[in-house]
Amino acid sequence: MTTSEEKRQPEITLTGCGYHRVLELISDKWTALVIYALENGSVRYGELLRKIEGISKKMLTHTVRKLERDGLVHRHITPIVPPTVEYSLTPLGESLLEPMRSLRQWIRVHDSQVMAARVNFDQTYNKDNDSPNLEDHL
């Protein structure tokens, strides 16, 4: 015998909608920052490293390889000694700029509201509990 909960099908699924693929593409902080760093054209590896605060060489290499695999970034190697490597957005990568700019604008406008909401939430739910379990309040 099944319960009504078991019969109910979810309306939103990870496998059934394309949103999870979008989130896979851009959800980590380094991916977004690399895309922003490339929005004005080709950039050499060392310049990318200098442009993006806090990113390590290992993480930058991992991120640009991931973006290259996803078809968002093109890597161009100039065969000189030593070789130079430049990265640029592909047309597919450039097509992400508009929605990402919209998200950047949204946070510029609403960041103070988000931060105020966090402070309010934390003050409300931390009054009686030093170690709150957020699930208890949902």
Rank of each mutant, 00 (worst) to 15 (best):
E11G: 02
K29F: 15
L38G: 13
L38S: 13
K51P: 03
T61N: 01
E53N: 11
G41I: 06
V114I: 10
D136T: 05
F121L: 05
I107A: 08
R50K: 14
I77F: 08
S131A: 11
Q9K: 09
R118C: 15
V64A: 06
L72N: 00
E11I: 10
L14I: 03
K51V: 05
I80Q: 13
T61H: 01
P79M: 03
R101D: 15
E86N: 00
L67W: 08
A32N: 11
L103V: 15
L96I: 06
V109Q: 00
V22Q: 09
S4W: 10
C17L: 11
R75D: 00
T15G: 15
T78I: 10
S42I: 01
V119A: 15
K57T: 08
S88F: 03
T84P: 00
D130S: 03
R108H: 12
V64E: 01
T2L: 13
L38C: 14
L23V: 14
P10Y: 00
G71I: 03
Y36P: 03
V85P: 06
P132S: 12
D111W: 07
D111N: 07
I26K: 07
V34H: 00
R65W: 11
T90A: 06
Q123S: 02
W30I: 15
R21W: 15
P132H: 04
S112D: 05
T31H: 09
N126C: 04
T13C: 00
K29Y: 13
S88R: 03
T13F: 00
E53R: 14
W106F: 14
R69W: 08
G18K: 07
V43Y: 05
N129K: 06
H76P: 00
R108Y: 13
F121R: 02
T61A: 04
A32H: 10
R69S: 11
K29R: 15
L134G: 07
E39I: 10
T63P: 02
Y19W: 07
L92S: 02
M100L: 15
S27K: 09
G46Y: 09
L92T: 05
K66V: 13
L60N: 02
Q9Y: 08
S102Q: 02
Q113K: 10
L48Q: 01
P91W: 09
K66F: 14
L134K: 07
L38Q: 14
E6N: 00
R69L: 10
R44W: 05
F121C: 01
D122F: 12
R50C: 13
N40Y: 12
V73P: 01
L96A: 03
E5R: 10
E6I: 04
G46M: 06
L97Q: 02
I35Y: 07
I107W: 10
G16L: 11
Q123N: 04
G93E: 11
K66P: 03
L14N: 01
M1H: 02
L48P: 01
Y125I: 11
R118P: 04
P82V: 03
E135M: 14
S112I: 09
A37N: 06
F121A: 02
E6F: 03
N120T: 11
V85T: 06
M100V: 07
V73D: 06
T31Y: 12
N126E: 08
E6D: 03
T90I: 09
R65K: 08
K7H: 02
T78G: 02
G54M: 04
F121M: 04
W30K: 13
M1T: 00
T15M: 15
D111Y: 07
L97M: 05
I35S: 07
V85D: 06
D122V: 04
